[in-house]
């Protein structure tokens, strides 16, 4: 077998699979977002009429997307929740990753494993754990009451605070791992040189460590931000029934309203927001091989 044929044999199956089950579905989402919602199976109109070649394009769902403030608000909310959570993930994750790098060598792999471990346990169950902690008669409120720090339970669940906690908690490992990978590569000699030249540690951090860890910060931030924008489970379980986040809106359009074209156009619009950061993340993750 020639080299070219071998390549084709290796590539054919994953390429075909990903095209059929990842690329083509997007085309279909795009198509159905342009259809009209009807009652029936399936609940949308055909784009090509059966009697001819006339295109039946309806911009109805996009018109609603643009005119109903609910959708704009849900998008802005999602970006706000994801963005603020990303910043908090960074503030917590950076010292954590740097601490692991600086820890004694024999601890390092264990510390790293402990960051990865929650990622291997059920995401749903980790979100669920916070309900028990944050609810009105939950662990945190009971502790605060018992200590006499508060006199009546704080509202910690079913609000924006709970969503932030949920996102930061669930996505923290995604921030720590790329940061660790980047900080570990950093040559300690650079910091020694800075110190020898009279640079104070904080200044050395700002001038040397921080700039050199920027690719890790970017990768971590994108790995947190992109999926968090479309998050459904966290706002649904921790944010309460009135949370407006675009992932939840898409879910409700589909499962509650059975409006497939609307759900599809919400997905298209979400993708339009995320396509740029997704391009960046591909560069960062496949940087060395691309």
């Amino acid at each position: 077998m020639s080299a070219a044929m071998r390549r084709r044999a290796v590539l054919a199956l994953p390429y075909a699979w990903l095209t059929l089950f990842f690329l083509v579905p997007f085309m279909i989402v795009l198509k159905i977002s342009l259809a009209e919602s009807v009652i029936g199976i399936p609940p949308y109109t055909a784009l090509l009429a059966t009697d001819g070649w006339q295109l039946h394009v309806s911009g109805e769902s996009y018109r609603r997307l643009a005119s109903d403030d609910l959708y704009a608000l849900a998008y802005l909310n999602a970006i706000k929740f994801a963005g603020v959570s990303t910043v908090f993930c960074l503030l917590l994750g950076y010292p954590l990753a740097y601490g692991i790098v600086r820890a004694p060598r024999r601890w390092r792999s264990l510390l790293l494993l402990l960051v990865i471990l929650p990622f291997w346990t059920s995401f749903l169950i980790r979100v669920y754990a916070w309900i028990g902690l944050l609810s009105g008669n939950g662990v945190i409120n009971n502790t605060l009451l018992a200590l006499g720090l508060v006199h009546q339970p704080l509202t910690l669940l079913n609000n924006a605070f709970a969503i932030y906690v949920g996102i930061v908690y669930s996505y923290l490992p995604f921030m720590v791992l790329p940061l660790y990978a980047q900080l570990e590569k950093l040559d300690p000699a650079l910091l020694e040189a800075a110190a020898d030249l009279g640079c104070r540690p904080w200044r050395a951090f700002c001038r040397v460590t921080l700039p050199l860890s920027l690719p890790g910060i970017a990768a971590g931030a994108l790995l947190v931000f992109i999926p968090a924008v479309g998050e459904f489970v966290i706002p649904d379980l921790l944010g309460g029934p009135n949370t407006l986040m675009i992932g939840k809106v898409l879910w409700d359009e589909f499962f509650a309203n059975h409006d497939w074209p609307m759900a599809a156009s919400v997905a298209v619009a979400m993708l339009a927001v995320l396509i740029l950061p997704m391009g960046f993340i591909r560069r960062l993750l496949q940087g060395e091989t691309a």
Partner: peptide, 30 residues
Amino acid sequence: RFRGRALFGTLAIAPLVLPEVITGLSLLLL
């Protein structure tokens, strides 16, 4: 180097970060 490498690279990595609601909806519609 092979034809469509950029597309293949994107397809191979996109499911990793794409919000699950989009992946789920698009596969169902397929």
